[in-house]
Design a protein around this nucleic acid. Structure first.
Lengths: 238, 238
DNA sequence: TTGAATAATTGAACGCTATTCAGTATAACT
DNA sequence: AGTTATACTGAATAGCGTTCAATTATTCAA
């Protein structure tokens, strides 16, 4: 209100909406840290309240219960994930280049925010009514980016259209999640490049050796040409 | 002890060891059902005790705590899984035939005992000290079967030896777990065949269209033979 | 068969944590 | 300033896993 007042939202926000939002952010941030540090069960509502500088009861004015608090934390994770994925895909034309970007992005994000992913895995993957909870829709939105790349790739015949889309998706994200876990368990610094290269290689030509598809189709052409030459000579001779 | 005694362990087992074992089985069975029906958190120790016809305190004589009870339930799951996998692999020579068997076995088992798998995912995948708990070793033993198939496949050059073994493993089991979840979420009856066929196809030749490797290598042989025929005739003629 | 010694079992009591709610303080508006 | 509506508080509640003093069953020597 006072004209010279600098817009410093961190100290004394003026509107009610701002105050509420700021408090919600503080709570979600406190919950994020508590969950990451202690896991879902290990994090106590009392701790979260203290960290957010709020009474325990106040948490329940902002979130129905501990699960809803987790939904909020995980929701923000998916928002970050989706935004970055969208950005990276936009300026890439080639199907496999897009897939490689998405793979690297997913892997790096999963490794960086591994504790969040653990929460997702352990608290959503086993609930019948997961589909009713917030992060489900956000997950759909994230995955939709991948789906559109693959659909387009199938139209372009970069990807075999007879494969079910969901199966390609399960292979892609299933592999990446497992690979991320492997990297985490290994400790050391994670070797992103090897994972991505291997995955892309397997996507392009399977697990058989020597990238046969490419190599042999070259041979095939050469041999075919040679056959025609020989056949032509034979026909000329006789 | 008494000579005419029929071996009926269900009613009045004689030795202490038998009694203890029988009770342990009853407890694990009760825990299994409770976990499957209600999930880990939903299942109450009081319920399990009642179902096993035992006092609550008795559970703690047999298992250190609720987690140890889960370890026992999951341990038995892995034992079943490993035994069947071992059996199926034994009488199969071809690398890809083994992989296909393992894939189908894993997928079918995961779908059949989905609730158990949910427990595994939600309670082990996020613990730092998972490696200390019982089921870790059993999981290793199970996965070792796959590893030995792939290692042998690499020696035989059925599988590209430059791929990291762990990466092939992550692709295999990551894909199958995600695919199992997809099948479960879809409801209906699960379509095992499509999952397995798609996976094997992607393993053999990636996601590119036309199964080129296999098809073209057959063409290659045919053409090569034909070329020799023509060449032979040409040589005879000239 | 006895009876002491040992082992197994019980269930009420404990501690811990998410959640609630009656009471209190703060903001909004006239 | 006074009044109403809104936001906040933290002690009280309830439900669960876990413990342990008391009780019952089993073993085994005499």
């Amino acid at each position: 209100m006072s004209p010279g007042e600098a817009q410093a939202p961190e100290n004394t926000p003026k509107t009610r909406r701002e105050r509420v939002e700021q408090r919600e952010n503080a709570i979600v941030a406190a919950a994020h840290d508590a969950f990451v540090d202690m896991g879902f069960e290990g994090a106590r509502m009392a701790d979260i309240a203290r960290a957010a500088k709020v009474a325990e009861g106040t948490l329940y004015l902002y979130f129905k219960n501990k699960n809803a608090l987790l939904d909020a934390v995980v929701g923000r994770f998916y928002e970050r994930l989706t935004e970055a994925a969208q950005d990276g895909v936009q300026d890439r034309a080639d199907t496999f280049a897009c897939l490689e970007f998405l793979a690297r992005h997913h892997l790096v994000s999963c490794i960086r925010e591994w504790r969040i992913l653990e929460l997702v895995v352990s608290r959503y993957r086993n609930l019948q009514h997961y589909q009713d909870r917030g992060p489900y829709q956000l997950n759909r939105r994230y995955v939709a980016i991948f789906d559109s790349i693959v659909s387009l790739g199938m139209k372009r015949r970069d990807i075999d259209p007879s494969l079910p889309l969901w199966m390609v998706r399960d292979l892609f994200y299933g592999t990446l999640e497992y690979a991320a876990r492997t990297q985490i368990l290994r400790g050391e610094q994670a070797n992103i490049a090897i994972v991505i290269d291997s995955l892309m290689s397997m996507l392009r030509s399977g697990i058989a050796p020597g990238d046969q598809a490419a190599v042999e189709s070259v041979d095939l052409e050469q041999i075919s040409r040679r056959l025609e030459q020989v056949a032509a000579r034979l026909e000329n001779t006789t």
